[in-house]
């Protein structure tokens, strides 16, 4: 028991104490730039303001829109890539691709944002060059509110589709070969084999990535911040960026904390679901 104490004390100090402090801050008037106001206790006033703040809801809506733009694409592409890697006869190629798929997931998101700035540049970016070859463009990928959201979504798709693919691939590799062979002899139709034999093995992985990516999108800050700073205007200001702006540029810590606590509740719900699905033995 005593062996676990240092870790638990550390987690209490860095994990629980700050959360309690955030909870406390969320119930106070706490404007760093106006120290003369003090930090009086105001109860749920901040929460009330947050819930009626249209900007907060818009940030959540943009986050949901980002989810809709990215997750279905990543899921479909991920399953496709996994099926391909599972079927291709050149096993060595499949092995190489598998290792390469890890790259986008591991690469520093900040750097991905910077590279995005380079290749999506309106004037000399590589993407617009490719478009010009087929007589299109130039597109202001980052300069136009309508397209900027697509640009950050595309970047996210580049980074996270491999994650979906690798998770799906591990689902496929759990299928006993004899089950697959029997199904191939019996039906032989690709779609039916996918639907009735392979898909059931993918389902846990799909649940896992959907929950994890929902949490990740609520967290998403660095790549978007570097690529667009939430702009133009607030067109790509996802919820994490909005809370950061209220906290560290408007310096309204009370409001920002209330917003953050609401996000925290969302993430705890997600964590609960994840545990319920994947670690049943803990629920006992």
């Amino acid at each position: 028991m005593r062996m676990a104490a240092p870790a638990i004390i550390a987690l209490l100090a860095i994990g629980v104490y700050p959360l309690l402090k955030a909870l406390n801050m969320s119930m106070r008037l706490y404007q760093i730039t106006k120290p003369y106001l003090g930090t009086p206790f105001v109860g749920f006033e901040n929460y009330d303001k947050v819930i009626r703040d249209p900007l907060f809801w818009q940030a959540l809506e943009r986050t949901a829109y980002f989810f809709i733009l990215t997750i279905p694409v990543q899921l479909v592409l991920g399953i496709g890539i996994a099926l391909l890697l599972d079927r291709v006869r050149w096993r060595r190629l499949a092995g190489t691709v598998r290792v390469l798929l890890v790259l986008p997931i591991a690469v520093t998101p900040t750097v991905i944002g910077l590279v995005g700035r380079l290749i999506f540049n309106r004037d000399f970016g590589f993407v617009n060059y490719l478009l010009s070859l087929i007589g299109l463009g130039p597109v202001a990928w980052l300069g136009d509110p309508g397209t900027a959201m697509f640009t950050i979504a595309l970047t996210d798709i580049w980074q996270w589709t491999p994650f979906f693919a690798l998770v799906m691939l591990s689902g496929l590799s759990a299928i006993p070969p004899e089950v697959l062979e029997a199904a191939q002899l019996e039906s032989g139709r690709g779609w039916q084999i996918f639907r009735y034999v392979e898909f059931p093995y993918l389902r846990p992985g799909i649940t896992a990535v959907l929950i994890l990516r929902t949490a990740d999108i609520l967290k998403l800050f660095d790549m978007v911040f570097v690529l667009t700073r939430g702009g133009p205007g607030v067109s790509t200001e996802l919820v994490s960026l909005y809370v950061q702006r209220v906290g560290f540029r408007v310096f309204d810590m009370g409001m920002a904390s209330a917003q953050a606590i609401l996000l925290l509740i969302l993430s705890i719900v997600l964590a609960r679901i994840y545990i319920r699905v994947f670690y049943q033995e803990l629920e006992a």
Binding site: L11, G15, Y17, P18, L19, K21, A22, M25, L212, A215, L218, K219, F221, S240, V243, Q244, G247, F248, M253, A256, S257, A260, I261, L263, L264, S267, I268, L270, A271, R272, Y274, I275, Y279, L282
Partner: peptide, 22 residues
């Protein structure tokens, strides 16, 4: 155990605000 796992899901901005003041 639950609490250890939930750290994987927590939005860092939640922690960033109190961390800054602390």
């Amino acid at each position: 155990w639950f609490w250890v796992i939930s750290n994987r899901f927590i939005t860092p901005i939640v922690m960033a605000l109190p961390f800054f003041l602390i």
